[in-house]
Each structure stands twice: as C-alpha cells, then as structure tokens.
Write a protein that binds this DNA or RNA. Structure first.
Lengths: 386, 386
DNA sequence: CGAAGTTAGTTTCACATATTGACAAACTCG
DNA sequence: CGAGTTTGTCAATATGTGAAACTAACTTCG
C-alpha cells in the first residue's frame, strides 16, 4: 500500500478534503458574495466559534482572503468581510458536441480565464478522451494546476458506481460510457460529466440570475429546447438522466409536424429549425429569418410569434408544475423573447394557474462559450461536493 | 413561564427528540420493512457500531422491537431482525373540506385504528380549530396519547416562522392562517398542516406503492385533478405552495371549455364534472355516467376515452419533466384508468419523449378515508422530521 | 465431531466537529 | 470617556461517529 503523495502544486499546504462546514461556507461566499463570519454563522445556523475555526482552515488553503476591509453595521464592532480568492483554484470546462470540442479554464468563481475550441477529431470514446487530455495539456501551459474538470454533452448521464456515466448520447453515438472516470484517469485530476442542459442549469443556478435561490427552472431555446429544473438547491436529474425532456410538449394538435412526427409540439414551433421551416422558403437559415423578422417581414414575424406562444405555454406549464422561485430563459434562440415578448406573456397569463404571485421571468443573453463554462461549473460544484 | 410537563403516557421514558441517525433508522424500517442492524448499517452507510447504539435507544423508547426471531443468511451468525412497534405511537389525521371534517387515528405505520367524520360546523378559523380539538378529544377516549396531528386541506400551504401556514384556501375562504400553530396549541401536541394533495403524495410515497423510491409522481383524478411530485425523497411544495397545479394543462385548444374558460385543458376532459358534462344530458351524475360506460353506452364510453387521452398526455408530460422512478394514479375518478387504459397508454406512447425505459405506472384504488390518513402521514413524517 | 470460516452484534477508545461561555477588540452613542 | 453592542477568538466541553478488537452464533468441511 503506497501512500499516494498528493502533488502539492503552488505554495498550498497538503489539501485535506473539505469538511462539511468548510464546503457550506465556501458555497455561501461563492453564491451570495462577501460576508462576515458572524453573518455566515447566522445564515448557516452555526456558532461564530465554528466559523473562526473553519475560515482559518480555508484561509490557510488559500481559498479565502480575510478582507483587511472593515464594514459597518449600525453599532458594535465592525466585521471583517471574507471574500473568495477566485485565483486560488482553476477548473477546466468542456462541452462536447457531435463534431466539436469547446473548452474553457475558469477560476473558482466560474470566470473564464481562457477559451479554446477545435473540431472533434473522432467520436470514438478513446479518441475523445485523448483529445480532452490534449486540450487540457495545451491549456495547462498557460494555466497550470487545474483542480478539476467537468464535461457537458447532450445525452443521458446517470450516476453509477463508476462515477457519472453517459447512458446514451445520440450525437456522439455513445452508450454506457463511464466518461467521468476515463477523463479523470487521463487528466490525473477529479472529473465529472453531466448532461449539458443540466450543466447549464447548474451554472445559472450558482453563478447566474438563479444565485441564492433554492428552486428555479431554466429554459434554453435554440437548435433544441432544453429544460433544467432546480429543486431544493439541487439540479433534478431524473432516474434515467432524462428529466426536463419537454421539447415535445403538446401545444396545438392541429399545428405543424415536428421531425419526430408530433403535431404542434413545442419543438415544432420553437426550435430554430421550426422557425425557419415555418416560412416555407428554401435556402433560408435562422440568421436570415431573424433579420427578416427584425425588418418586419410578416411571415417571419408570425413565425416568431407562434414560437413565442409555444414558449409561453411551456413556461406556464413548468411554473404550474414546479412553482419555482424564478424562471430563466436563455439559449442561442433567445431572440424569440425579444421579438415575441407579448405572445409569451399572453400565453403565460392564459395558462398560468395562479396569477396572484407571478413567477419572476428572466431573459438571459447567451453565448456559445456558456456551454463550456457550464462544464467548469460542474467541476466547481463537484469540488464543493454539491 | 410555566414548564409544560409533558404528560408521559404509557411506560415510555421521557422523550428526547430523535437524533438524525435514529430518524433515518426508523424511516428505513418504516418504509422498507423489517431488517437487521447490519443491513440497515450498509443501507445507510453507517457502521454497525452506530446501529447498535441507535437501536438500543429506539428500543428503550418503545419504537422498535428486537425481533426474538432469527433469520438466515447463507452463512455466518444469523441476524436479529428489527421491526417497528406500530402500536408505540398514535397519530391523528384530519382532512378538511369546505363543509366536512374527516378524521382518523393511525398507528406508527399509518394503519387506521379509528375513523370518524362529521359536518364542518363553521368555516371560521376559530371554530374549525375548536372542532378539530373536539374531535381529537372524542377520539382520545378510545385512543389516548396521540403523539402528533396532521391536517390536509385544499389550498396553498407554505412554511413560515409560525409553522405551516394556509396562505390561501378557496373552499374554506382562509388566507394567512397559521393552522399548524393554532391546532398544536389547541391539542397540546405537535401539529402540522399541508395541502391535501401533497399529504396524499407523502402517504403514497412512504406507505403506498412509492415506498422505497427517491422520486415519484402521483396523479389524483376526481372532482379536480391533483398532481404531487417527490424528488430526492421530498415532496415538492413550490415557493408559494402551488407546485403540481396542472389541472389546466392544455390538451387540445379545440376541445371543450373548462369552468375557468380554458379550451381543451386537462380538467375539461378529465374531471368527474367534465365527464358528466360531455354527455350533454341533464340530470346525470358521475356515478350514473360510470354505470352507462360500464354498460357500453357509446357516448359515456367516449367521454371516458377522451378523459383517458387527457390523462395519458398529463402522465407523459410529467414523466418527461421529472423522469421519476414511478408514476401512481389514484383518486375517486380512478375508473378512467380501468375504462380507458388503452387511450392512456396510447397517449403516453405518443407523447413520452423516451421510450427506451418506460416509467412504471401504478393504478391505485382510492377510498375517501385516504385523505384523512394522508393527514396522519404528515404527522408521522413530521415526527421523524422529514 | 471439532476446527475453521463467516457474519452479526457489542464494547472500548480515539477522533473529528460543534457548542458554550468567557473574553478581548473595535466600534457608536450619549 | 464610560456604557452598550457586536465581532472574532480561545479554552473547555459535549456529541456523534467509526476503527478495531472481541464475543456470539451459525455453517461447512475434513
């Protein structure tokens, strides 16, 4: 039995795994921003003494900085504001599509330090893992000492005894791949994997407009329609890793047919392809239809309005089902929220069961790099065991 | 400040609140049935030593019995099977409707020991609380020493610093009523309150076909359509206590109008009233339409088929959203599942996103007393701090 | 039949983690 | 400047947990 000598990079002391309170403290500071020890203690229901102990350990590990700053309450001794040291840890985030690999290195607060992408050389598991390894090494030249990695991809990812496992991924044609374990072995650091939509949900929940909420719903519109659900501070996965599969929610049985044969489902109105198809004009792509709609072209405007209606029904259904604190809409097809806000709100008003307390709706701009950043957030959450 | 002298009924020693592991152990035995210490230890990821300690405390409190029975594994020392002592605690469950009060006393395993119901004398909060008190005293004659009470009612119930509070209840015309606190004070025992649908979900989750699952969805059909959701072992409440409000899920925008003006929503097909209304024949009630359908009357059969289709769409939508381990259908309108199973399954097949792993579907018979029993389950879960 | 092997349950002890209560520090207010 | 207040720390202490060693109770095999 050889004692694995954890390679101590930088000047950090040997890293004991974070204890429970250490993790909650770090999470509290990450999500809610700088706070004093006393505040955290009240928030977490712990004693101040415990926070002295825990924050000392975190400061020793370089994760926190004891703000030399002082802040004033109304009376009494001013508190020392603790803040995260974002630069203390780095994380690698990866998004895999059927033909491309997007990667990003972030700090502890999920801020991107470096971005990189390249075509996926091969869909074979072995090759993909090797490519992730190569990308890691390439990025490590400038950003050494990445603490953990997270990978997001379309498909069903479930938790098994071999770590997060890709049960099925149509685009990559994978099934039963223990991706987290494979990548971890290749990179020599902890790694995790998750469905890309749930990764994005995790990112928005901790570092986006969902920060500080116990529940939220994220709807991402674009090539497909993705739904991510957070309940009780955790992203809902589903027993088969299929939660949030609402792209074929029935909207109007007399509507157009989607590529899977449903009449008038959400995807048949709302996906980028559906918006393009609604114009029945060959040679158009999403960008040009968007331009047409912005220019006032009636058919294009109508396509976006129909999409907005479908989105509103979807949002209302989710709000009725989960009653979340917040609903966030994002994705590369986010323009629908700008062009058809009226239809969205009208559909919500019609189908929302309880109008007394409208659920806050946030429209978030989207950039494709978000997908890779979401992978890094997976790694951060995993680092904090959340 | 007078020290409330907890009336120690029976020979039980002074009741310290159960510790974390004590609760999980009791829960494990309640939900999964008799087990040995070693089995529980493995299940809960604890050491056998801890189980020795914890079970001793539970046995002293009378909650467990150390099975004198011995059971055989393949080899080694036989294990002593621990079992719950159902008779060790009693719970009061109450269901309030707009004009009636249903009550039940159960044991620790939610088995009914006594049932009772009477008209609600008044909808005023004070009177209702007093009536619950009177019913408690009446039932206490035969079943003294009730440990805790749980009350279910239609409406939004939220958790506040005053305990479970009825934010709004249309039938009772209540709003902002700290019902749990009021009842607890009147009865002198811990009390809790919850939306009736979530209470029923909790009951089915622990003591019904959901037992042992971390996630499930319950659909109750009857006068209305209720949906209860369990994720990660907990019943989803929603920030406003409105989760699961799917009675107006759009099914077909060209369908009949429900009482709230929606065209073709789930309620417009599936509620008992909608099934009766579909026949457009005056003077009929649900029971007679049910008889007609069982007798083969075409219009009645069609009404149930349409209802079955709506139910199938609802189930598929919930399965797509949550990907639960199990879906349970019950309620006093459960006949639809018997008369239109084909339509239900067809709709699920059409709208279910992933057909690879069908979600198990359970049809559960229903008796109105279930509502009150569900209240008792609330009390039991509360007793175990779950 | 008895020794060896296996699993269950118990006991003891050490350890990690949290709280309590006392105390000094750093401020405001009158 | 003292009184009041709140923060952060320290020392002592309580609590819950697992590791390891032990006993108990059974099966199997030579």
């Amino acid at each position: 039995m050889k004692p694995t000598p954890a390679p101590v990079e930088e000047g950090a002391p040997p890293r004991a795994p974070l204890s429970g309170l250490e993790r909650s403290t770090l999470r509290e500071l990450l999500i809610r921003g700088p706070k004093s020890r006393a505040e955290i203690a009240r928030e977490l229901g712990m004693s101040r003494a415990s926070l002295t102990r825990v924050t000392r350990a975190l400061i020793e590990q370089g994760l926190l900085a004891d703000g030399p700053v002082e802040l004033r309450g109304a009376t009494g001794r001013p508190s020392e504001v603790l803040r995260i040291r974002p630069e203390s840890r780095k994380f690698l985030g990866v998004k895999l599509t059927g033909d491309h690999l997007f990667a990003v290195v972030t700090d502890l607060t999920a801020q991107a330090l470096a971005e990189y992408d390249e075509p996926l050389a091969s869909r074979r598991v072995k090759d993909a893992v090797a490519q992730i390894g190569a990308v890691h090494e390439r990025l490590a030249e400038e950003h050494p000492g990445v603490a953990a990695a997270g990978i997001g991809l379309a498909g069903d990812v479930v938790s098994t005894d071999k770590g997060q496992t890709v049960a099925q991924s149509p685009f990559l044609e994978w099934s039963g791949v223990p991706l987290a374990a494979l990548v971890s072995e290749r990179l020599g650091i902890p790694a995790t994997a998750e469905n890309d939509m749930r990764a994005l949900t995790a990112a928005e929940h901790w570092f986006g407009v969902g920060a500080g909420h116990e529940s939220m719903v994220l709807v991402a519109v674009g090539a497909g329609i993705g739904v991510g659900i957070v309940v009780d501070g955790k992203v809902v996965t589903g027993i088969n890793g299929k939660a949030g599969s609402l792209e074929h929610l029935p909207i109007d049985p007399s509507g157009p047919r989607c590529e899977r044969g449903h009449r008038g489902c959400a995807a048949s109105y709302l996906s980028n392809a559906a918006i393009v198809a609604a114009l029945r004009a060959p040679g158009l792509d999403y960008a040009s239809v968007l331009d047409l709609a912005r220019g006032g072209d009636p058919a294009a405007v109508q396509a976006f309005r129909d999409a907005g209606h479908a989105l509103g029904v979807l949002i209302a259904t989710l709000a009725n089902t989960m009653d979340p604190e917040k609903i966030v809409v994002t994705g590369d097809g986010i323009a629908v929220a700008e062009l058809a806000r009226g239809e969205i709100d009208a559909a919500i008003a019609t189908y929302r069961r309880h109008l007394g307390v409208p659920t806050p709706l946030d429209i978030q701009p989207f950039d494709f790099a978000e997908w890779a950043r979401a992978g890094a957030v997976l790694a951060i959450r995993d680092f904090l065991h959340f």
